[in-house]
């Protein structure tokens, strides 16, 4: 064989050898770093804990608002609950709640879904973050076990409807609204005029009915009598410690404690895997981008005009 050819073949063998060595090196490195840095979504095997995060106001979001038709709001929560219910790997669920509550219908939908899952003997543990008030607590009450931090704001059992009265402002700037309606209640809770006593009564009926449903559901979820809840169900907020005393929650603990409690209830080993939200990073990015484009951050979201004229299970200071 030509001398030059021998040199080239030797070089190629050298490259091949270094490639094999590098692969072995990476393999050893992988063994060492198992469970440490850069843990990217792996095909975790075995039964584990499903985690669902409910952050912010609870409402039924318009899907068309989110890019590429991704679900958001309560629909996304219910969708994820369905996924976890069907997933044979998920034996227990931890709900991480950090919410001041939200609309009546959206909250009730999530509650019903959770109760159905609970009936299938899938233990659900709620972990409260900074706040799980009103509708946030309503959802938590559907869980088998509720844990909160001692500083968590919870309670606020009640219903609220807020409608701004802009009549004086409109008069000041000379705006008059022409309203043609089929019945006297058609523009109920209108912002352009004072509310009549009849209308107040009508809204109060809805509020009372929603409130009774709230009490009934909390009683059902917590397995305590309505009479025991009622003294604290006047809309008051309370911290975690008080909530334990009032039997609204089961104990004080962090998210980690909630995960451990869920494992205990489902009789899972300590090293059972945790299945986080199924949304890919791209989906999360698109949803966050949606919020960014619409300017849904901080104060703007707090004063969102859509919150008005809605009947809500919500802590609204």
């Amino acid at each position: 064989m030509d001398k030059n050819r021998k040199i080239i073949i030797s070089i190629l063998i050298l490259i091949l050898l270094s490639t094999v060595l590098a692969i072995i090196d990476i393999g050893i490195n992988m063994q060492k770093s198992k469970g440490k840095m850069f843990q990217i979504s792996m095909p975790d095997l075995g039964p584990g804990v499903g985690v669902l995060k409910i952050y912010g106001p609870i409402h039924i979001a318009n899907d068309s608002n989110v890019p590429f038709g991704l679900s958001s709001g309560s629909d996304a929560v219910i969708e994820r609950l369905h996924e976890m219910e069907k997933d044979s790997k998920i034996k227990t669920i931890v709900l991480r709640i950090n919410s001041p509550g939200g609309t009546v219908a959206a909250t009730q939908e999530i509650f019903e879904r959770l109760m159905k899952i609970r009936k299938k003997n899938i233990p659900i543990v709620a972990s409260m973050g900074e706040m799980a008030a009103s509708g946030g607590y309503y959802i938590a009450s559907a869980c088998d076990y509720i844990l909160a931090n001692s500083g968590t704001i919870t309670g606020s059992i009640g219903v609220i409807a807020v409608s701004p009265n802009l009549k004086t402002l409109f008069e000041k700037i000379g705006i008059k609204m022409n309203v043609i309606k089929s019945g006297k209640y058609k523009d109920l809770l209108s912002s352009f005029r004072d509310i009549s006593s009849d209308e107040k009564k009508l809204v109060q009926q809805i509020i009372d009915s929603s409130y009774n449903k709230f009490l009934k559901d909390v009683s059902l979820g917590r397995n305590i009598a309505i009479a025991d809840i009622k003294p604290y169900a006047d809309g008051r907020i309370m911290d975690g410690m008080t909530a334990v005393k009032c039997k609204l929650i089961d104990g004080i603990g962090t998210f980690e404690d909630a995960v451990n409690k869920a494992k205990e209830l489902a009789k899972l080993p300590e090293d059972a895997p945790i299945f986080e939200d199924s949304k890919s990073s791209l989906e999360r990015f698109l949803i966050s981008l949606d919020g960014l484009i619409k300017g849904n951050f901080g104060l703007i979201q707090r004063f969102n005009y859509n919150n008005f004229n809605m009947i809500e299970y919500r802590y609204l200071p």
Partner: peptide, 18 residues
Amino acid sequence: SIIEIITFSLFGHETQFF
């Protein structure tokens, strides 16, 4: 393509993502 990916993988703490 193979060599580039192996070389680049040498620097980090690789997981099964490798």
